[in-house]
Amino acid sequence: MKKVLITGGAGFIGSNLALKLIEKGYSITILDNLSKQIHGDEPEQTSPLYISVKDKVTFIRGSITDRELLQNALIGQDVVVHFAAETGTGQSMYDIENYTAINIGGTALLLDILANNRQSYHVKKIVIASSRSIYGEGKYLSDELGFVYPQARISSKMNEGNFEVTYSGVNKPLQLVATDEESKIHPSSVYGITKQNQEQMIMTVCPTIGIAPVALRYQNVYGPGQSLSNPYTGILSIFSTLIKNGKDINVFEDGLESRDFVFIDDVVQATILGIENEEANNQIFNVGSGVPTSVITVAETLIKYYQSSSQINISGNYRLGDIRHNFADLTKIKQKIGFSPAVSFETGIKFFVDWVNQQEIKEDKYEESIVEMKERGLYK
Rank of each mutant, 00 (worst) to 15 (best):
I22W: 00
L49G: 00
T331E: 11
G90N: 12
V291K: 13
H122K: 09
F239D: 01
G9N: 14
V251F: 01
T179Y: 01
I38V: 15
K362L: 03
L70R: 09
S27W: 00
D266P: 00
A115T: 14
I249R: 03
T7Y: 07
L176I: 14
V190Q: 04
S189T: 13
Q198I: 13
G88L: 08
Q45I: 14
S155K: 12
G255L: 11
T179H: 01
A342E: 14
G88N: 11
Y26G: 02
S130T: 11
K374T: 11
K195H: 10
N281I: 04
A84H: 15
Y379K: 08
L236M: 11
V343C: 03
I6W: 06
F339P: 03
K124W: 00
D354C: 03
E367V: 09
V80L: 03
L330M: 07
V177I: 07
I113P: 02
D143L: 15
V221P: 00
Y121H: 04
A299V: 07
S35L: 03
G25H: 05
G255K: 12
R61E: 10
E160K: 10
L34C: 09
V214Q: 12
A108L: 15
G106Y: 06
I38C: 04
F83W: 15
C206A: 09
V262H: 08
G14A: 09
S35K: 06
V343G: 05
F352C: 14
G106P: 02
I284N: 04
T208W: 05
V80I: 10
S240F: 02
I193H: 12
T293E: 12
I6K: 12
F261W: 07
N117T: 07
G274T: 14
I6M: 11
E253W: 03
M373I: 08
L236S: 05
D78H: 08
L21E: 09
I361L: 00
G225E: 07
V53F: 11
D329K: 12
I370S: 08
S183D: 05
E346C: 04
H39N: 12
I235T: 07
P231C: 02
T179F: 01
V177A: 01
N277I: 01
S131N: 07
T166A: 06
L242M: 15
E144S: 15
S27A: 05
G290E: 09
F327A: 05
D265H: 12
S188W: 05
I264C: 11
I361F: 01
N326M: 00
I333Q: 11
I296A: 06
F252T: 13
A299F: 01
E253R: 15
D78Y: 04
K184M: 15
T233Y: 03
S229H: 02
V79K: 06
M93Y: 06
I314Q: 10
V262T: 13
Y232E: 10
G25W: 08
L302F: 03
T100K: 15
T331N: 08
P43Y: 03
G223S: 08
T29R: 09
S15P: 03
S188Q: 11
P231Y: 15
N16M: 05
G90D: 14
S237M: 08
V123L: 04
T46D: 15
L19E: 13
A152S: 05
F163H: 06
T271G: 01
E253Q: 06
S227V: 03
